[in-house]
Amino acid sequence: MTTNATPTARVSRVELTTLALSLIALAVSIYLTIEHYAAPNSLACPDTGAINCTKVTTSKWSEVGPVPLALLGAIYFAAMSALCVPAAWRITALDRVRIVGAAGGVATALYLVWVELYQVEAICLWCTVVHVASLALLVTVLWRVTGRESA
Protein backbone atom coordinates (compact mmCIF):
# COMPACT_ATOMS: atom_id res chain seq x y z
CA MET A 1 0.00 0.00 0.00
CA THR A 2 1.32 3.41 -0.85
CA THR A 3 0.42 6.88 0.23
CA ASN A 4 1.50 8.42 -3.04
CA ALA A 5 -1.15 10.22 -4.99
CA THR A 6 -1.27 9.47 -8.67
CA PRO A 7 -2.72 12.57 -10.27
CA THR A 8 -2.86 11.05 -13.72
CA ALA A 9 -4.97 8.08 -12.61
CA ARG A 10 -8.36 7.80 -14.30
CA VAL A 11 -11.49 8.21 -12.21
CA SER A 12 -13.17 4.82 -11.98
CA ARG A 13 -16.92 4.28 -12.09
CA VAL A 14 -16.77 2.48 -8.76
CA GLU A 15 -15.22 5.55 -7.14
CA LEU A 16 -17.95 7.74 -8.57
CA THR A 17 -20.54 5.24 -7.31
CA THR A 18 -19.17 5.48 -3.75
CA LEU A 19 -19.39 9.24 -3.99
CA ALA A 20 -22.94 9.12 -5.36
CA LEU A 21 -24.10 6.77 -2.59
CA SER A 22 -22.52 8.96 0.10
CA LEU A 23 -24.18 12.06 -1.36
CA ILE A 24 -27.60 10.38 -1.57
CA ALA A 25 -27.39 9.32 2.07
CA LEU A 26 -26.10 12.77 3.00
CA ALA A 27 -29.04 14.43 1.25
CA VAL A 28 -31.60 12.20 3.03
CA SER A 29 -29.87 12.78 6.38
CA ILE A 30 -29.98 16.55 5.86
CA TYR A 31 -33.68 16.31 4.95
CA LEU A 32 -34.41 14.29 8.10
CA THR A 33 -32.39 16.74 10.21
CA ILE A 34 -34.31 19.72 8.85
CA GLU A 35 -37.62 17.95 9.41
CA HIS A 36 -36.55 16.96 12.92
CA TYR A 37 -36.10 20.61 13.89
CA ALA A 38 -38.71 22.26 11.67
CA ALA A 39 -41.75 19.99 11.34
CA PRO A 40 -41.23 16.43 12.58
CA ASN A 41 -44.82 15.50 11.72
CA SER A 42 -44.67 16.54 8.09
CA LEU A 43 -42.33 13.90 6.66
CA ALA A 44 -43.22 12.77 3.16
CA CYS A 45 -43.93 9.22 4.26
CA PRO A 46 -46.95 7.08 5.20
CA ASP A 47 -47.78 7.41 8.89
CA THR A 48 -50.04 4.45 9.48
CA GLY A 49 -49.35 0.80 10.16
CA ALA A 50 -45.88 -0.67 10.10
CA ILE A 51 -44.45 2.09 7.90
CA ASN A 52 -44.42 5.28 9.91
CA CYS A 53 -41.51 7.68 9.56
CA THR A 54 -42.89 10.17 12.08
CA LYS A 55 -43.22 7.51 14.74
CA VAL A 56 -39.57 6.59 14.25
CA THR A 57 -38.11 10.05 13.87
CA THR A 58 -39.97 11.47 16.87
CA SER A 59 -39.28 8.52 19.16
CA LYS A 60 -36.88 8.81 22.06
CA TRP A 61 -34.48 6.64 20.04
CA SER A 62 -34.16 9.37 17.41
CA GLU A 63 -31.80 11.40 19.56
CA VAL A 64 -28.51 10.86 21.33
CA GLY A 65 -28.87 13.27 24.21
CA PRO A 66 -29.92 16.54 22.61
CA VAL A 67 -28.49 15.65 19.19
CA PRO A 68 -30.79 14.09 16.58
CA LEU A 69 -29.48 10.91 14.98
CA ALA A 70 -30.26 12.43 11.58
CA LEU A 71 -27.70 15.17 12.26
CA LEU A 72 -25.08 12.61 13.31
CA GLY A 73 -25.89 10.74 10.10
CA ALA A 74 -25.43 13.89 8.05
CA ILE A 75 -22.02 14.52 9.63
CA TYR A 76 -21.00 10.90 9.04
CA PHE A 77 -22.05 10.92 5.38
CA ALA A 78 -20.39 14.30 4.81
CA ALA A 79 -17.16 12.69 6.03
CA MET A 80 -17.72 9.61 3.85
CA SER A 81 -18.42 11.88 0.86
CA ALA A 82 -15.12 13.63 1.46
CA LEU A 83 -13.36 10.25 1.63
CA CYS A 84 -14.98 9.14 -1.59
CA VAL A 85 -14.23 12.05 -3.90
CA PRO A 86 -11.91 10.90 -6.72
CA ALA A 87 -9.00 12.95 -5.39
CA ALA A 88 -9.30 11.24 -2.00
CA TRP A 89 -9.44 7.82 -3.64
CA ARG A 90 -5.91 8.46 -4.97
CA ILE A 91 -4.66 8.49 -1.39
CA THR A 92 -4.46 4.77 -0.80
CA ALA A 93 -3.54 5.27 2.84
CA LEU A 94 -7.18 6.23 3.38
CA ASP A 95 -8.46 2.87 2.17
CA ARG A 96 -8.53 1.42 5.66
CA VAL A 97 -10.36 4.51 6.96
CA ARG A 98 -12.92 4.13 4.18
CA ILE A 99 -13.48 0.45 4.94
CA VAL A 100 -13.78 1.01 8.70
CA GLY A 101 -16.07 4.00 8.12
CA ALA A 102 -18.35 2.12 5.72
CA ALA A 103 -18.45 -0.96 7.98
CA GLY A 104 -19.31 1.27 10.95
CA GLY A 105 -22.14 2.75 8.93
CA VAL A 106 -23.57 -0.69 8.20
CA ALA A 107 -23.24 -1.76 11.84
CA THR A 108 -25.09 1.39 12.91
CA ALA A 109 -27.76 0.71 10.29
CA LEU A 110 -28.29 -2.80 11.70
CA TYR A 111 -28.63 -1.37 15.20
CA LEU A 112 -31.19 1.17 13.96
CA VAL A 113 -33.16 -1.55 12.16
CA TRP A 114 -33.28 -3.41 15.49
CA VAL A 115 -34.57 -0.22 17.16
CA GLU A 116 -37.23 0.19 14.48
CA LEU A 117 -38.41 -3.42 14.68
CA TYR A 118 -38.20 -4.01 18.42
CA GLN A 119 -38.46 -0.66 20.18
CA VAL A 120 -40.46 1.69 17.98
CA GLU A 121 -42.33 -1.02 16.08
CA ALA A 122 -42.40 0.99 12.88
CA ILE A 123 -40.25 1.30 9.79
CA CYS A 124 -39.08 4.66 8.46
CA LEU A 125 -38.76 4.61 4.67
CA TRP A 126 -36.32 7.52 4.57
CA CYS A 127 -34.14 5.77 7.14
CA THR A 128 -34.29 2.61 5.03
CA VAL A 129 -32.95 4.55 2.04
CA VAL A 130 -29.98 5.56 4.18
CA HIS A 131 -29.48 1.99 5.45
CA VAL A 132 -29.50 0.55 1.93
CA ALA A 133 -27.09 3.26 0.78
CA SER A 134 -24.78 2.38 3.69
CA LEU A 135 -24.69 -1.28 2.69
CA ALA A 136 -24.14 -0.42 -0.96
CA LEU A 137 -21.38 1.97 0.07
CA LEU A 138 -19.59 -0.76 2.00
CA VAL A 139 -19.84 -3.10 -0.98
CA THR A 140 -18.50 -0.57 -3.46
CA VAL A 141 -15.71 0.58 -1.15
CA LEU A 142 -14.61 -3.03 -0.64
CA TRP A 143 -14.84 -3.66 -4.37
CA ARG A 144 -12.66 -0.68 -5.18
CA VAL A 145 -10.07 -1.36 -2.48
CA THR A 146 -9.74 -5.07 -3.28
CA GLY A 147 -9.47 -4.20 -6.96
CA ARG A 148 -6.60 -1.88 -6.19
CA GLU A 149 -4.86 -4.46 -4.03
CA SER A 150 -5.12 -7.19 -6.64
CA ALA A 151 -3.97 -4.89 -9.45
Binding site: L110, L117, L138, V139, L142
Partner: peptide, 28 residues
Protein backbone atom coordinates in the same frame (compact mmCIF):
# COMPACT_ATOMS: atom_id res chain seq x y z
CA UNK B 1 -8.09 -16.37 -8.33
CA UNK B 2 -7.80 -12.69 -7.37
CA UNK B 3 -11.19 -12.00 -8.86
CA UNK B 4 -12.70 -14.85 -6.80
CA UNK B 5 -11.07 -13.48 -3.65
CA UNK B 6 -12.52 -10.03 -4.40
CA UNK B 7 -15.98 -11.43 -4.85
CA UNK B 8 -15.75 -13.35 -1.59
CA UNK B 9 -14.43 -10.28 0.24
CA UNK B 10 -17.25 -8.11 -1.07
CA UNK B 11 -20.10 -10.60 -0.87
CA UNK B 12 -19.27 -11.91 2.62
CA UNK B 13 -20.38 -8.72 4.42
CA UNK B 14 -23.57 -8.59 2.34
CA UNK B 15 -24.33 -12.18 3.30
CA UNK B 16 -23.62 -11.45 6.97
CA UNK B 17 -25.81 -8.34 6.94
CA UNK B 18 -28.67 -10.12 5.19
CA UNK B 19 -28.40 -13.01 7.65
CA UNK B 20 -28.59 -10.63 10.64
CA UNK B 21 -31.55 -8.82 9.04
CA UNK B 22 -33.33 -12.13 8.43
CA UNK B 23 -32.84 -13.16 12.06
CA UNK B 24 -34.12 -9.78 13.28
CA UNK B 25 -37.24 -9.97 11.12
CA UNK B 26 -38.01 -13.63 11.84
CA UNK B 27 -37.63 -13.23 15.61
CA UNK B 28 -39.68 -10.03 15.50
Amino acid sequence: ANQRRRLVTVLAPIGAVLAVLAVLVVVR
